[in-house]
Design a protein around this nucleic acid. Structure first.
Lengths: 160, 160
DNA sequence: CGACTAACTTCCTTAAGGGAAGTCAGTTGG
DNA sequence: CCAACTGACTTCCCTTAAGGAAGTTAGTCG
């Protein structure tokens, strides 16, 4: 389908999308996050074709989001586990789930609840500022050009 | 390409992806968020084909993320603006940007900085629990089935 | 030794993305 | 008043990714 590459764009959103911007990847990530880790489990749970699953897993491994681990030689059995980079991507899933709960959930309420280890309560994520700790939504910020805002962010291309 | 539908899945992540799971949509959202609002501006800025841009805009309008507004009759001129649903989706962009800054930014640093209105400082988003206010990352929660966890979350399908 | 399972790969069909060109309303310039 | 121009798309064609089914390989079990 000759897709436009996003990985060279001077935008962290675009570069994130280059890694998980196609729709199956976040769902694969979700499954691995909740413990569905083996190829055939993933395929069954997602209803994805094995070809596409295979492609996506390779992609995610190549981008250091997942690791393929052999948990049994003889018979050879494998599972996919999150890297640190992948675990941090799961934060994005929590935010997606929150938006989906608010705007797309049916009459029956949210399909999944999140219990916070620290307080033991069912809650959801809220965005706060890393500096002052107050709520920080998209509507609460100004967007300014940063040091990496050059046209082409290849190695060594230091911004203006 | 006959894509699998995500909108009937009992998962808020999948349903969110049904709306903006294809890679251009978040970038369109980003552009509208920062004030790039007209068809030809979007096309120029993104390097997207007008066909695909047209399709995406229709989709986003159909899903109440954007609104098409005529800001001039004679000559007829239009711009796209975020709805409330769309503005809340932009929170997701902040989280994507944060991950992209951490894991995909080049040597030159983040391309964009976010100044928080409340404190005036450059900061980034952090996820906190809506109940206790403490940090709440994907690694800090247990995932439990919720009321809408039935097989098919069509209208009236109340979970077990 | 044949059936079975995990984990893929190959092959074929369909449709979505990319790009170029065309369309249409309305406005400005000579 | 006709031509050129602009915004905002639409149409057409080509390429390639997604879906699905079937085939493959390594190894275990009965």
């Amino acid at each position: 389908m000759q897709r436009t590459r996003f990985d060279e764009m001077a935008c962290s959103i675009a570069r994130t999308l280059d890694v998980i911007g196609e729709p199956w990847s976040p769902l694969i990530l979700r499954d691995v996050y909740v413990g569905i880790a083996r190829f055939d489990e993933l395929q069954r749970d997602l209803g994805i074709s094995s070809k596409v699953l295979s492609d996506r897993l390779k992609w995610l491994i190549d981008h250091d989001v997942l690791e393929r681990r052999e948990y049994s030689r003889r018979p050879p059995r494998h599972e996919y586990v999150l890297t640190q980079k992948g675990r941090e991507l799961c934060d994005l899933l929590l935010v997606m789930a929150r938006w989906g709960d608010r705007w797309t959930a049916g009459t029956s309420g949210p399909p999944v609840l999140y219990r916070h280890h620290a307080c033991g309560q069912i809650g959801h994520v809220e965005l706060h500022c890393s500096v002052c700790g107050q709520p920080m939504r998209a509507t609460d910020v100004d967007v300014l050009p940063g040091p990496g805002s050059g046209e082409n962010v290849r190695a060594g291309a230091v911004g203006d």
